[in-house]
């Protein structure tokens, strides 16, 4: 393959100049017209702060939010994977009722904006479940008990457990629709002939799924699945609207108390970027090894 000369044409210089000009204009508008005082030096303190009494570094608002976001993403992903796989299989079922139910659920969730879906699930489902199982009292009991450390490691502040669980549940329900479609596509990509061969040696539908279809389908859909996981991390910011104390919520808190609008949001954007981009690099590495 002939090496193409990597030189900059005059068009490239023109584009760079336009971009530079664009950012310069924004900068001047912000610093000049808006009279904004940048306080970048204060930000690190809101990530990690030195606790005088305990004598150690303690996570502050932004880092707390980040850790909660990570926890929620992991739990919601696992739940969405399970629910989505069931939905995907149901969508391919020979039973008309099951197939139609799954299809209806998927179509609803894919055609309504995430914020609306999350609010609906929150009020109609999560609130009811939390009340029905009396989760609030249980969580408070754990928070007050002698050693809540193990629970706190997995779920953060136990007093906020009900809202966190609500957040995980609605996020998982929402994302399961997309996982379901991915699984369905995977299942339907398995050639019909193999399924006929499985049936011809006497396998029932369950065996056919378990030993022939799903092992191949799930392996095949790992790339779009990992994409969906990254999507889920981004969508998790929506549940800040139902008062789950994840990164976006904490940033709003930070901004309202310190008025450091630009620094806070830029930092949060950087944190999300690091998280998602890091995950995509990780998945790319894992997929690369598979080949």
């Amino acid at each position: 393959m002939r090496r193409r000369k990597r030189s900059l044409h005059w068009i490239d210089w023109l584009i760079l100049a336009v971009l530079a000009g664009f950012f310069a204009v924004i900068w001047f508008r912000i610093s000049g017209t808006l009279n904004y005082k940048w306080q970048w030096d204060r930000i690190p303190n809101y990530i990690l702060r030195w606790d005088e009494e305990d004598g150690r570094w303690v996570a502050n608002l932004l880092l707390q939010g980040l850790i909660t976001t990570i926890r929620i993403s992991i739990y919601a992903s696992i739940l969405a994977l399970i629910l989505g796989t069931i939905l995907g299989i149901a969508r391919c079922s020979t039973n008309l009722a099951i197939r139609m139910l799954a299809r209806t659920y998927l179509e609803f969730l894919r055609n309504i904006p995430p914020v609306v879906v999350i609010f609906i699930f929150y009020f109609f489902l999560s609130e009811q479940i939390v009340a029905a199982f009396d989760i609030e009292r249980w969580a408070r009991g754990i928070a007050r008990s002698e050693n809540p450390e193990m629970w706190e490691f997995f779920f953060g502040d136990m007093r906020r457990f009900p809202s966190m669980i609500s957040g995980v549940l609605v996020l998982a329900l929402f994302e399961s629709a997309f996982v379901g479609e991915i699984v369905r596509a995977g299942i339907q990509s398995i050639p019909r002939g193999q399924r006929e061969a499985a049936r011809a040696i006497g396998m029932g539908w369950g065996d056919e799924m378990r030993f022939v279809v799903l092992p191949q389908a799930l392996r095949k859909v790992i790339p779009p699945m990992s994409n969906q996981f990254i999507s889920l991390v981004k969508d998790s910011s929506i549940i800040s609207l139902i008062s789950v104390q994840e990164l976006t919520y904490k940033t709003v808190e930070l901004v309202s108390s310190t008025r450091m609008i630009f620094e806070a949001w830029l930092t949060t954007a950087a944190l999300y970027f690091l998280l998602c981009f890091g995950l995509s690099l990780l998945f790319r590495r894992l997929e690369g090894e598979r080949r």
């Binding site: 002939g193 193999q194 006929e196």
Partner: peptide, 8 residues
Amino acid sequence: FQQFNLFP
């Protein structure tokens, strides 16, 4: 089968 249909 004509297309063998082995499980890959």
